[in-house]
Simulated assay, not measured.
Amino acid sequence: MRPMLLLPSLQVIPVLDLLGGHVVRAQRGERHAYRPIVSRLVAGSRPRDVAAALLARCPPPAGSDPVLYVAELDAIQGRAADTETLAALLAMDPALTLWVDAGFRDRASAQALRQALGRHAARLRPVYGSESLAGPDALAGLASDPQAILSLDCRHASPMDPAGAWTRPRAWPSTLVVMTLDRVGSGSGPDLATFARLRAMAPERTWIGAGGIRDGADLQAGAAAGAAGWLVASALHDGHIGTG
């Protein structure tokens, strides 16, 4: 069956989950169970190959540069970030921007990764996951940083939030992600209730959803809820959505 066309009002942002030098398939945030991706779009799990296939399947809106979201799972779990792979991804296309969650505890840790990437650093936007932020002080300065993205993470409707980010909308940057980990790779549909509740606290921000997208109908529901974009991986790999 032909996939439904993507809605022009909602940007689908393809996702790479990186672990041990491979792209893996995320499953409900249960990272011990992640295995190398098996995709209808591309053979193997090499990051550059998978990234190229996703971007070809899901090009950016007209007039926009390509964006790829990268969950650097080694770093999120406390190990060193794979800077070699991140640099190789950025080298694919001089217009490509990476939104990278590498388990940043604060702005200093994000700056350290950008310094390690050298000349490519300007095209990396750091994603600060609420599950990783060290504490309340780690939110300082995010609201004034136009490159910063804050991911409000939860699992089974419970915030993952040692820094108290969920209750401090004045500290939020201009771009936010609502990351419902138990919906990621689940095929159970997006968590629109949590998305709507958080967006109502700061509707003037740019809001991105994450997790649960199954098809074009879910994208339509996300757009109706006020999402500017949605992070998607499994539905692209399985051929359920795409413009290619």
Rank of each mutant, 00 (worst) to 15 (best):
D74K: 06
A224D: 15
L98V: 12
V15N: 02
A88I: 09
A138E: 01
A71T: 06
L6T: 05
A157G: 11
S9V: 05
I37S: 06
G239V: 01
P159Q: 04
P36H: 00
L124H: 05
T194A: 10
A225S: 00
H120Q: 15
R205A: 13
V232S: 08
A202G: 06
G211P: 13
P61R: 13
P59Y: 11
L7F: 13
L124N: 10
S186F: 14
L54I: 01
R119K: 13
F195P: 08
L5Y: 04
E30W: 12
G185E: 03
R25P: 10
L90A: 03
Y69N: 10
L133C: 05
D82S: 01
P159V: 03
A53R: 02
L89S: 08
D74L: 14
P8N: 03
Q11N: 05
L219T: 08
A143T: 09
A116T: 07
D215A: 02
A88D: 15
D218E: 02
A122M: 13
A56Q: 12
V24E: 14
W207E: 03
S186H: 07
L98H: 07
R155M: 08
L176N: 02
P173F: 01
V50T: 10
D191G: 09
G118W: 04
V24Q: 07
A112E: 13
A91M: 04
L133D: 05
T194E: 11
R183P: 08
P159N: 08
T85M: 11
P36G: 06
T194Y: 03
E72P: 06
L19R: 06
I241Y: 04
A108W: 09
S158W: 03
L55V: 05
L41E: 08
S132Y: 11
A108F: 10
T243K: 14
R48N: 11
P47R: 00
T180K: 05
V50E: 10
L192W: 09
R170F: 01
P8A: 03
P162S: 11
Y69G: 09
I13G: 03
S9F: 13
A26Q: 15
I149M: 12
A202E: 04
L73S: 00
L124V: 15
P8C: 12
I213P: 00
G229P: 00
R57I: 12
S188M: 09
L96G: 04
A233N: 01
T206S: 14
